[in-house]
Simulated assay, not measured.
Amino acid sequence: MQHHGSSPEYHTLNCNGKLVDLSGPKIMGILNLTPDSFSDGGKFNNEKAALVQAEKMLKEGAEIIDIGPQSTRPNAQFLTTGEEINRIGRMISLIKKEFPEVLISLDTFYSKTVKYGFNEGIDLINDISGGQYDSKMFDVAAETKLPYILMHVNPSYETMHDKIKFEDITVSISRYFSEKTAELLSKGVRDIILDPGFGFGKTVEDQMKMIDEVRYFGFGKCPLLIGISRKSFIYKPLGKSPADINEETQKLHLKVLRQGAKILRVHDVAEAKKTVDLF
């Protein structure tokens, strides 16, 4: 297996002209703007709550904040791009003003939401759909010149959580990655981060295999983002609740870091930070 450090481009991301060094792992903290994530006490209270949460995650060691206007968990309410933009409001620019050093990724599968976020100051695009739910997404990603997080997922919003039995999950995901990265590169997207898509339409066994084989995704060419925080493949087999699996989650985090994962997308930043420091 080739040493990951052999390609210098691999180590930096160009986020709006800011070069981000990926030689050590980074923590991405999740900031959901969904009503069930904040007590909905009008816009001002929401903005205040989001800023408090962002500050807490930055203090605990997150360098990236992932803002998500729409939930993509099973049976979540579907939002249009207009509803997403409305929900984001001034949140991105407020966080940027308050914490200029923070990197903000925007979790959306709509190109229009990306355009809005770009004007508000986002640094990365986190599209759970791999450009499959909006045909303009790759073009808009190229226009912004921002790093693009490419996630493996089923081809439509409706089938997002349908459990598919793969002959070989690692081979299937790697094939998907190589096709989509070729398309992104041909359109002019320079920085691509790969996310194998834990929690999206995959069996528990397949996800455990993915954890074991993380090092093979993306052939060591692109940095890997791993998002396993509070995912059911960890807590359901244990008969636990999403909040009670910290120990198991950190063991798995350590396992993927040892295989070269560069970004951990998490709810519990302080716990992940301990794991990164241990690593």
Rank of each mutant, 00 (worst) to 15 (best):
S37M: 05
L238I: 10
K202A: 11
A142T: 07
Q70G: 00
E55M: 01
C222L: 08
E158A: 12
R87Q: 14
S129Q: 09
T108K: 04
G24F: 02
G201I: 01
I128C: 03
K236Y: 09
P35D: 11
I95Q: 05
P25W: 03
T34E: 10
G29A: 09
N32M: 12
L94K: 14
V276R: 04
K274I: 04
S229V: 12
G29S: 06
P8S: 12
L185G: 08
E55W: 01
F219Q: 06
P237K: 11
T181V: 15
I104L: 15
E84T: 06
L150V: 10
M210R: 02
S172E: 15
Q250T: 14
S23A: 07
I95C: 03
F198G: 03
L31G: 06
S6Y: 03
S6N: 07
L150M: 13
I169L: 08
K236R: 10
E143P: 00
G68I: 01
V266I: 10
Q132L: 15
P69Y: 00
F166W: 15
T34M: 11
L278W: 12
D36Q: 10
L184I: 13
I67R: 01
L94E: 07
H4C: 00
E213D: 15
E143C: 04
K112R: 15
F166N: 09
E101D: 15
M57A: 03
